[in-house]
């Protein structure tokens, strides 16, 4: 086609440009890039090993050697303890974030679409938002006892606000012309909502969900330290009390790896579900 191409595209998501891999052509260079990701962790591992096993700078109860940690890893995997705790934590995250999504998205849409609803809710929500999720732990224990319900409640609170704020921001990015176009094409108000407002907001909702997963993963571990009898947070707290620092570190590494995995997964899902967003990544 002889039509000249316009280069009016503005990159909307600065940070995403370098992080998210782009198209097929980018994939071949990706295998080499892994080395960069691995350099610092490996260096750190060597220093850790050197300071503990070789120089013996710390008592192993304070900082065990990486080899002891690796053995502990094998141990908690073998007896199934690690998997059980991971399962508990992940399930709680799932319930909490699902509930947050179901409740925050409609409220966010309503707040974004109707100024009166926003005025009504904004004061209350602004007051609750600065309260750290962990400050709810004492109340949660009183209301729901120690266990899953408390943890889900606390995690829900941390996820709720991320999704809500992103959803409202997404509705704000609504293009008046898209609504006009849809109406003049014969779309009903209901169809405008489901086929214009929702797709416009979807990328923001997704960003909110991704932030929510990150935030709730952090707060769930915090909450499990206090208000649970299972889960990764509970596990590292328990082993701290019996001075098994190696298992504590196993728990911490697991938390980090799972957090990373969830972020990568949600990015992958986002790319699959929202292909039009690739436009923001054009060079």
């Amino acid at each position: 086609m002889p039509w000249p191409t316009e280069s009016a595209e503005k990159p909307l998501l600065g940070p995403e440009l370098s992080v998210a891999g782009t198209t097929r052509s980018g994939r071949s260079g990706r295998s080499g890039r892994w080395i960069y990701y691995l350099v610092l962790p490996v260096v750190l591992l060597v220093i850790w090993w050197f300071c503990t096993d070789v120089l013996a700078l710390f008592p192993s109860a304070l900082l065990p050697s990486p080899i002891r940690v690796a053995k502990a890893f094998g141990h908690v995997i073998a007896d199934g303890e690690l998997m059980l705790n991971i399962e508990d934590s992940l399930l709680r995250i799932f319930y909490a974030d699902l509930a947050a999504l179901i409740i925050a998205v409609p409220i966010g849409l309503a707040m974004g679409l109707y100024q009166s609803i926003e005025r009504l809710l904004d004061g209350l929500l602004s007051l609750f938002r600065p309260i750290p999720p962990l400050a709810w732990v004492p109340l949660a224990i009183l209301w729901f006892g120690i266990g899953t319900l408390s943890i889900v409640f606390i995690t829900f609170l941390s996820a709720f606000f991320s999704i809500l704020v992103s959803t409202v921001a997404g509705v704000r990015s609504l293009d008046k012309l898209h609504i006009r176009a849809a109406l003049s094409l014969g779309a009903s108000r209901r169809r405008v909502l489901t086929h214009v407002v929702l797709p416009t907001t979807l990328p923001s909702i997704f960003t909110g969900l991704r932030i929510a997963i990150g935030v709730s993963w952090m707060s769930i571990v915090g909450a499990e330290l206090i208000a649970a009898s299972s889960g990764l947070g509970y596990m590292i707290n328990y082993y701290q009390q019996v001075l098994r620092t190696d298992v504590v570190i196993v728990g911490m590494i697991t938390i980090g790896v799972i957090g990373l995995g969830m972020d990568l997964l949600s990015r992958w899902v986002e790319r699959r579900l929202l292909p039009w967003r690739q436009g923001a990544r054009l060079p």
Partner: peptide
């Protein structure tokens, strides 16, 4: 009264739906 499909509109900024 209001927009209707018997009056189609073409906009300067295209107003295509980017998700479709």
């Amino acid at each position: 009264s209001g927009p209707a499909p018997n009056r189609g509109v073409v906009f300067q900024e295209y107003a295509l739906f980017p998700w479709l």
